[in-house]
Structures are given as C-alpha cells and as structure tokens.
C-alpha cells in the first residue's frame, strides 16, 4: 500500500491518518477522485437533476463572499456560515427551484444554456470520521461560455462533507469559495 502523507493547512493533521474504514488511504482517494470526475461530467453535460442526486436530502450548498482584508486580518476574509450575505445558502428545495427553472426553457440567464467545463482536482481528504463520513477538499477551474461572446473563468475550492451511501457517496454539505472579490460575470446561473 502506498501511503501518501499530506498535512492539511487548516487542521494541521495528517490527511491520510489510519481510519476505522478498511479502505486504504489510496483506495479512498482514488474512489473520491472518480466520484468528483463523474460529478464534473454531469454538470458539464447539463444533467442537473442527476447531479443533485449526488447530494443528501438535507444538503447545504453554501458559497460565502470573499472579502478584501489586510493579510494580518485574514480570518475576516471568508465570513463563516450564518454571519453574512453569502452567494449561495441553499437547501434541497431551493436547489430544486434553481434546477427546475432551467427545465422551463425560460431561464433567460441560461437560454441558450452555457457551455461549461469544470476541471476538478487537487483532492485532499481532510478527515475521516468513525462512521465513514469524509471531509474532502478540491480545487476547481470552471470556464463558462454563454451566448456569443460572454466568457467567465471561475477558480476556487470546495470543501465537502461526504457520506458512504449504497456503495457510493452523497454530499451533505458543500462550501464553495471563489478566488474573486467582485464577480466578473454577468450572473452566476451555473453550479460548482
């Protein structure tokens, strides 16, 4: 077994520490990577209902703002959940509103739909809990092309809480942090 030791910046813990799971760190990493690759394809192929099925019923889809603060006050850069006006603070119902909107053919922000390409990588397994719950972090680049000339390049990272369910994974909490202060896109009608 190849054991890769990575120290997570936030928790300062070894990310592939031994867990209760029988899976080796390498197996888990490979499995999650495949999960995220499949997810990216669903988003880019506009299979949004199938994408939503990768989340649990009690999902939280959260995207905080990213503030300009002095480096000495870095703890204020990303306002924690429940303290600010985030870009997304959605439960399953609201995600369904957003996705069902697209089905109507009248969601003008996505009509005709954007061409997107999500590249997801830099997977770090931050923590594995006793019950198999996994905390994972990924980085992404997403290019959006809309209508004739509009393009936007989003970069950022995601922190997920994943649960093993029926041989696959379900995300219960996703935090998306964009690497941008003023969003340089006319609207954010796509998902990450």
């Amino acid at each position: 077994m190849v054991v890769v030791t990575v120290i997570d910046r936030d928790t300062q813990s070894e990310v592939f520490a031994p867990t209760a799971s029988a899976k080796s760190a390498q197996e888990l990493w490979t499995e999650l990577n495949a999960f995220y690759i499949a997810e990216a394809w669903l988003l880019d192929e506009r299979k949004l209902h199938e994408w939503l099925d990768m989340f649990t019923e009690d999902l939280l889809y959260f995207m905080p703002r990213r503030k300009n603060v002095p480096s000495r006050e870095a703890d204020r850069e990303i306002p924690p959940y429940g303290t600010d006006l985030p870009f997304f603070d959605e439960d399953r119902k609201m995600m369904l509103v957003r996705i069902q909107r697209m089905d109507s053919g009248m969601a003008w922000a996505e009509e005709p739909p954007s061409r997107t390409r999500h590249l997801v990588g830099n997977l770090v397994v931050q923590r594995v809990e006793e019950d198999g719950t996994v905390h994972a972090k990924t980085a992404f680049l997403c290019h959006r092309s809309h209508a004739e000339y509009d393009t936007a390049l989003y970069s950022g990272y995601r922190e997920d809480v994943l649960h093993p369910v029926d041989g696959t994974w379900k995300i219960s909490r996703r935090t998306i942090v964009l690497d941008v202060n003023v969003v340089l896109d006319k609207n954010m009608a796509i998902f990450f």
Binding site: F87, D185, N187
Partner: peptide, 8 residues
C-alpha cells in the same frame, strides 16, 4: 448575482 430572479 446568483439570484434566480435577477439572473434573468
């Protein structure tokens, strides 16, 4: 920017 009304 993410509002499902304003986006349209």
């Amino acid at each position: 920017v993410t509002g499902h009304f304003e986006a349209d």
